Measured scan of single mutants.
Amino acid sequence: KSEISQVFEIALKRNLPVNFEVARESGPPHMKNFVTKVSVGEFVGEGEGKSKKISKKNAAIAVLEEL
């Protein structure tokens, strides 16, 4: 299972809201860097990556460590 689906499963079991959002985009158009924030109830994680998908996955990994 992907880290993102694990976050949603845990949140569902604990009845917590999940929110993913792109917090920052930086860099030139051909080499963008994304920072995504995820919140699961009061737990927050942040991930960085060269694409929105990678930064979302890294944010999920960060919040899984707290859950």
Rank of each mutant, 00 (worst) to 15 (best):
K1T: 10
K1Q: 09
K1E: 08
K1H: 02
K1M: 09
S2D: 06
S2T: 08
S2F: 02
S2G: 10
S2I: 00
E3F: 10
E3V: 13
E3D: 07
E3R: 04
E3W: 07
E3C: 09
E3P: 13
I4D: 06
I4P: 01
S5Y: 04
Q6D: 05
Q6H: 06
Q6M: 10
Q6C: 07
Q6I: 06
V7N: 02
V7I: 08
V7Y: 01
V7Q: 02
F8V: 09
F8G: 07
F8Y: 15
F8E: 08
E9T: 09
E9L: 06
E9V: 04
E9W: 04
A11Y: 00
A11V: 00
A11S: 06
L12G: 13
L12Y: 15
L12R: 15
L12W: 12
L12N: 15
K13M: 09
K13A: 13
K13N: 13
K13Y: 07
R14G: 06
R14T: 06
R14K: 09
R14E: 07
N15L: 04
N15M: 07
N15G: 14
N15A: 09
L16N: 02
L16C: 04
L16F: 05
L16S: 03
L16W: 12
L16Y: 05
L16M: 11
L16T: 03
P17S: 14
P17C: 05
P17M: 10
P17I: 07
V18W: 01
V18T: 01
V18L: 06
V18C: 09
V18S: 05
V18G: 02
N19P: 02
N19Q: 14
N19A: 13
N19G: 07
F20H: 02
F20K: 05
F20Y: 07
F20D: 03
F20S: 05
F20C: 06
E21R: 12
E21I: 09
E21W: 14
E21T: 14
E21H: 12
V22Q: 13
V22S: 12
V22A: 13
V22M: 12
V22R: 15
V22P: 15
A23D: 11
A23P: 14
A23M: 15
R24A: 10
R24D: 10
E25Y: 10
E25N: 15
E25K: 15
E25H: 12
E25S: 14
S26P: 08
S26T: 15
S26Y: 06
G27I: 08
G27V: 05
G27N: 07
G27Q: 08
G27S: 08
G27L: 06
P28Q: 09
P28R: 10
P28M: 07
P28F: 06
P29T: 11
P29Y: 08
P29F: 07
H30V: 06
M31S: 15
M31C: 15
M31I: 11
M31G: 14
M31A: 15
M31Q: 15
K32P: 11
K32G: 14
K32T: 11
K32M: 10
K32V: 12
K32H: 08
N33E: 08
N33W: 12
N33I: 11
N33G: 08
F34Y: 15
F34M: 04
F34P: 05
V35W: 09
V35N: 06
V35E: 06
V35P: 04
V35Q: 11
V35L: 13
V35G: 04
T36I: 00
T36H: 03
T36V: 02
T36P: 02
T36E: 04
T36Q: 04
K37T: 06
V38K: 04
V38I: 10
V38M: 08
V38F: 06
V38A: 09
V38D: 03
V38C: 15
V38H: 03
S39N: 10
S39L: 08
S39I: 11
V40S: 02
V40W: 00
V40R: 01
V40I: 04
V40K: 01
G41W: 01
G41T: 00
G41M: 00
G41Y: 00
G41S: 00
E42T: 13
E42G: 14
E42Y: 11
E42V: 07
E42P: 15
E42W: 07
E42S: 14
F43Q: 06
F43H: 14
F43K: 07
F43D: 03
V44S: 12
V44W: 11
V44I: 13
V44T: 13
V44F: 09
V44M: 13
V44Q: 12
G45F: 06
G45N: 03
G45E: 05
G45P: 00
G45D: 03
G45T: 08
E46C: 13
E46S: 12
G47V: 01
G47D: 02
G47N: 01
G47E: 01
E48M: 14
E48Y: 14
E48N: 13
G49I: 01
G49P: 01
G49R: 02
G49M: 02
G49F: 00
K50Y: 09
K50Q: 13
K50D: 10
K50F: 06
K50S: 14
K50I: 10
S51G: 01
S51M: 03
S51Y: 02
K52A: 11
K52M: 07
K52P: 09
K53R: 13
K53L: 08
K53W: 09
K53G: 08
K53H: 08
K53E: 13
I54K: 12
I54L: 13
I54S: 12
I54P: 02
I54M: 12
S55L: 01
S55P: 02
S55T: 01
S55R: 00
S55Q: 01
S55M: 00
S55W: 00
K56N: 06
K56F: 05
K56V: 07
K56R: 13
K56G: 03
K56W: 01
K57F: 01
N58Q: 11
N58Y: 06
N58P: 01
N58D: 02
A59E: 01
A59W: 00
A59H: 00
A59T: 00
A59P: 00
A60H: 01
A60Y: 05
A60R: 00
A60S: 07
A60I: 05
A60P: 02
A60D: 03
A60V: 04
I61N: 09
I61C: 11
A62D: 09
A62Q: 12
A62C: 08
A62G: 07
A62H: 08
V63M: 08
V63T: 03
V63Q: 03
V63W: 01
V63L: 10
L64V: 04
L64I: 03
L64P: 05
L64M: 09
L64S: 05
E65G: 12
E65Y: 09
E65K: 15
E65M: 07
E65S: 14
E66T: 13
E66A: 15
E66V: 15
E66Q: 15
E66Y: 15
E66F: 15
E66S: 14
E66I: 15
L67A: 04
L67K: 04
L67T: 03
L67I: 11
